[in-house]
């Protein structure tokens, strides 16, 4: 039960969505975009967010697309995780998604909501980081396309009013060999202690991780160093220097255990990689 009152909108165009948002801002009120709405509901129940308006993006045409077109996989931000898993044909994305929440919850949780989540995990972004996706943003000045590495994490890069419309990525990349591992506190359903996605693309290894630090990360330096390293242990020893922020230490796991698991996964990936190439 959400105890405060709010206004609920389901605009049919992006312009309307942005206009409603603007309108509330101008009245000094707090609007919020929603796509699945699950996180907003959970947080609003506990008054962790108290929006005056919910602007539900689900009804906007195009926000539901999940298709390969012009050599690109294009996924709308209101596409549910289950829909993306079954319709993207992207094996790694499917595997990653199916480790998030439960089958039923994934009928409601969306790609956009997962990427813009206030939680540190946002695991659906990992395959998108690995494939150097582009994000189409809606802004008051119209749609703009940006490299995912320039706009993610959204909380640091998106301006007020801006929202995610779509993600695009090169269709050719989706079938490349991949690696995925998620470690949880105990039940598989839990949030990750740490999860790592990797892909072999054109003699490179690409690695992205979630759960380790405040934001999911693409680890480009580590990727390079692994390629060059004679002994993988050398990379492992300095793994903390690859991280932009401290390792999370919380009730899911303490930081030393997180680090231990992460190192072990990276070692597996490296050995795997060396074996494969």
């Amino acid at each position: 039960m959400i105890s405060f009152d709010l206004q609920y909108f389901q605009p049919n165009t992006i312009e309307d969505a942005i206009n409603i948002y603007e309108q509330f801002i101008s009245e000094n009120k707090k609007p919020i975009y929603a796509s699945g709405g699950t996180e907003i509901i959970s947080r609003a129940r506990r008054n962790e967010v108290q929006p005056d308006a919910i602007i539900d993006l689900k009804n906007i045409p195009g926000f539901h697309k999940c298709e390969h077109k012009a050599g690109k996989l294009q996924i709308g931000s209101a596409v549910t995780l289950n829909h993306a898993a079954t319709h993207s044909n992207f094996p790694l994305l499917k595997t990653v998604i199916q480790s998030i929440a439960t089958q039923t919850a994934r009928n409601k949780i969306t790609i956009g909501g997962n990427l813009a989540s206030s939680l540190p995990y946002r695991e659906a972004v990992l395959p998108l980081l690995l494939t150097d996706s582009t994000i189409v943003l809606a802004t008051p000045k119209g749609a703009i396309t940006k490299n995912i590495h320039d706009v993610f994490p959204f909380n640091e890069h998106l301006k007020e009013l801006e929202l995610m419309m779509e993600v695009h990525l090169d269709s050719k990349l989706i079938k490349h060999p991949h690696f995925w591992i998620k470690k949880t506190k105990q039940s598989q359903i839990n949030y990750p202690i740490v999860s790592v996605a990797a892909m072999h693309i054109d003699n490179e290894i690409r690695i992205a991780t979630s759960g380790l630090t405040a934001n999911p990360l693409r680890m480009k330096q580590l990727e390079k160093d692994i390629l060059q390293a004679v002994e993988i242990e050398d990379c492992l020893d300095q793994i903390e220097s690859y991280l932009p922020s401290p390792i999370i230490d919380d009730m899911i796991a303490q930081s030393d255990y997180r680090l231990f698991l992460f190192k072990q996964i990276i070692k597996d990936i490296a050995i795997n990689w060396k074996g494969a190439s």
């Binding site: 699945g36 709405g37 959970s42 539900d56 089958q103 039923t104």
Partner: peptide
């Protein structure tokens, strides 16, 4: 859990306004 257009959804995760 209820079915919304034949798909299982948790009713606690739905705004009533959404089921229009």
């Amino acid at each position: 859990t209820i079915l919304v257009d034949h798909i299982p959804i948790q009713a606690c995760q739905l705004f009533s306004m959404e089921v229009m």
